[in-house]
Nucleic acid binder design. Structure first.
Lengths: 224, 224
DNA sequence: AATTTCTTATGATAATTGTCATTGATTGAC
DNA sequence: GTCAATCAATGACAATTATCATAAGAAATT
């Protein structure tokens, strides 16, 4: 039976860092779990026992704060779900839930740690990948924190358009979640979307969005 | 001659992960560099060749952005300076400069990578430490992004008070840098400091600050 | 099918923050 | 020591964003 890690991120990490026989072992040790949209994958304060990455679907990483939910990042296939804190902390400091129906691959965290201890190339590879992912989240956040409402909303629209690889796409998150992602109030996010529509930069039917003037939208994202 | 890593962060990482003889080798391979306040340690876009941590002094990590400098983090003794991107990128995406006179310890990055490849316990240790530090920066940022002007300024004052371990201390950074650190305009940061002074919560003589009502200051930091 | 709840939407208004202008103090360069 | 540049401070005003109120439509529940 062929190991189905072939199309997973894990394979990319393992690639050339572990011999095929061993790979088979670790690969078989992993578990897959499926989640329906809106289901919870990780809950804030859960103890960290597993190393999880997303095989299919779309997830959100978010924190429960006094000011409401704060979305830290959107996880795409091949992204790590247990990204931050995995090796740093005892407990998750954020929650993860499925935006679309999703399938995750799960490895026992101790197995991963054992691999790091025993397999140098793997260790170097995983530190690189985890570092890169965390960096991207941090620098994205630093970027938008300097931007204003319009720019932030334009940014989100472009990101999801790129994700779907289409100028016409269905926004997978609600307006409220868009607001939690850009760190602005729902009302102002909705108002911005309406304004972009009135200026014929985008077309909007509920969650269906079509970018009519990509250049102008990019311009709005980049200035201010 | 005794290796003077004894009081360095490196020692903590190496501790129990590498045998004393080898430690001596790596320790001797490292270089120390001294910087005067305001001198540049790392410049944005420099190629990443070294692994650097702070032995003495105080530094700031910051980005040069169209909207001006953005301070990402304040580095204290035993903190890593080449923290973000070290294993992830080719170039630094941020600059580091000395706030106070500082001494850094420098190891060749390839030596560190070699250690990761050859020494499992070291690899696991470094992945944990780097991860934890990056996490702290990200979550601090997520926290303040939900706070308002007053709360952010109170937060900075408390942080530097804690750093000096004294309610009366000298603010090591300028008002402008405080503004760049909290992500608000200089004028509003100054106004907030003035208001805190008028309310008898702090005493201010230029950079000398004394916290008069710590509880009230903490309260301001925590709400809103 | 009816009811409740959530989402999207918009206007009015208030709160928050930024910008511009000005001034005195401090610092750095020469 | 003098001059220029930067820093700290404050007021006036403008821009930006949040909050509250309201309402129609969609989705979930009964």
């Amino acid at each position: 039976m062929k190991c189905d890690c072939d199309f997973c991120s894990l394979k990319t990490i393992f690639f050339n860092t572990i011999n095929p026989n061993e790979l088979e072992n670790y690969c078989n040790a992993k578990i897959q779990r499926a989640y329906k949209a809106k289901e919870n994958i990780i809950k804030q304060n859960d103890s960290i026992q597993e190393f999880i990455y997303l095989k299919e679907g779309l997830v959100k990483l978010y924190r429960d704060t006094p000011a409401g939910n704060q979305i830290i990042s959107i996880g795409k296939p091949l992204d790590f779900v247990s990204l931050l804190s995995v090796f740093a902390d005892e407990k998750y400091s954020y929650s993860v839930s499925a935006i679309k129906d999703s399938v995750v691959c799960v490895m026992n965290l101790n197995d991963v740690k054992k691999l790091i201890l025993e397999n140098g190339p793997f260790a170097l590879r995983i530190i690189t990948v985890v570092n890169k992912a965390t960096d991207r989240i941090l620098f994205d956040y630093l970027d938008i924190s300097q931007k204003r409402l319009y720019s932030r909303v334009a940014n989100v629209i472009i990101k999801f358009s790129e994700l779907s690889q289409n100028l016409s796409f269905e926004m997978p998150i609600s307006r409220k979640e868009m607001a939690q992602l850009v760190g602005m109030s729902i009302e102002n996010v909705i108002r911005t979307i309406s304004d972009l529509r009135k200026d014929n930069i985008i077309k909007v039917y509920g969650k269906d969005i079509e970018i009519l003037d990509f250049e102008k939208l990019k311009h709005i994202r980049d200035i201010s």
